[in-house]
Design a protein around this nucleic acid. Structure first.
Length: 276
DNA sequence: AAAGATCGCAACCGCCACGGA
DNA sequence: TTCCGTGGCGGTTGCGATCTT
């Protein structure tokens, strides 16, 4: 039974709070809202009541549109592939449903939130909370995984430092050969300064320099990690930091941040561009 | 068959960030 | 700088459907 039918049958259509109707939407209300969005576009939700003749507040209209009426919504069950993405991203971001939803076109944050709650939350709960042995095992496993991750990061750091060193050596060789070519031995040579790394960005998070464009998931992932380096993912991080050492140019960064066209152009909201 | 438990999901609530006046 | 309107987000609720005992 649809909510609309239900509303009619159960008499919820009379549920009114401060002049606004509440409860399940009727087919007629849906039609009015769709018409409104067609002619006025999304946004300015508070004017829907006035312009569309709906007795719903702006929030309710927006929610109905975003979660149910939007034409690009994907109907049907969450696929195993989508489920994997949800699991992976939830492990990474926690309950940031809207962030996770951006990686699943056609799925809403509400849908994903509901899916998680019904399918996984209970499974997490089933870890016996009072079972010390199980908890200890879990902690040990977490510690082990952390150690492995640290080792990997160290390796990455070493690798990238080596690459930077090689690059610097190459530069020096080039400079020296230029000096030789131009017979500059009696003049003071210009020695390029190694730029100071921004304090808030660990060097191991930078991608290698082999590619001139940030066009693969690995690099996007690394770029994400840069932004994930602090607590909320946006403070202290900006394009300039990302472009540090010239590993990416402005176009790369702009390309990256433009990857999610439907989202606000803020750092925080573009963290998941690689999955778009 | 009936009662209770659980699931699924639309909708609401309260808080917060942002932008414009 | 402050205030206010607006939109977005995550948490929660409510209720029919379905499953289990």
């Amino acid at each position: 039974m649809s909510w609309g039918v239900m509303a009619g049958q159960l008499g919820w259509s009379g549920l009114i709070d401060e002049g606004w109707r509440k409860g399940p939407w009727t087919a007629e209300e849906d039609r009015l809202l769709i018409e409104y969005v067609k002619s006025h576009g999304e946004g300015r939700w508070n004017s829907v009541a006035r312009l569309a003749g709906l007795k719903r507040n702006g929030k309710s209209c927006r929610l109905r549109w975003v979660n149910y009426l939007r034409p690009d919504l994907k109907r049907g069950q969450i696929t195993p592939h989508e489920e994997n993405i949800i699991l992976e991203l939830h492990a990474r971001w926690g309950n940031r449903w809207s962030t996770i939803a951006r990686s699943l076109p056609g799925r809403t944050d509400n849908e994903i939130k509901n899916y998680w709650r019904t399918h996984f939350k209970k499974k997490v709960k089933t870890v016996p909370e009072n079972c010390d042995k199980a908890r200890t095992r879990m902690l040990k496993r977490q510690q082990f995984q952390q150690q492995q991750q640290q080792k990997q990061e160290q390796l990455l750091l070493q690798h990238q430092q080596q690459q930077l060193l090689q690059l610097n050596q190459l530069d020096m060789k080039k400079i020296m050969s230029l000096l030789d070519e131009n017979n500059y031995e009696n003049k003071v040579a210009y020695v390029p300064q190694i730029r100071q790394q921004p304090e808030n960005i660990p060097i191991n998070f930078y991608p290698n320099t082999s590619s001139s464009t940030a066009d693969n998931q690995h690099e996007y992932g690394l770029l994400n990690t840069v932004f994930n380096g602090n607590n909320n993912g946006n403070e202290g991080c900006n394009e300039e930091n990302v472009m540090w050492e010239g590993l990416w140019n402005l176009d790369d960064v702009n390309g990256y941040f433009g990857a999610c066209a439907s989202t606000k152009p803020t750092m925080h909201n573009n963290l998941l561009a690689p999955f778009c």
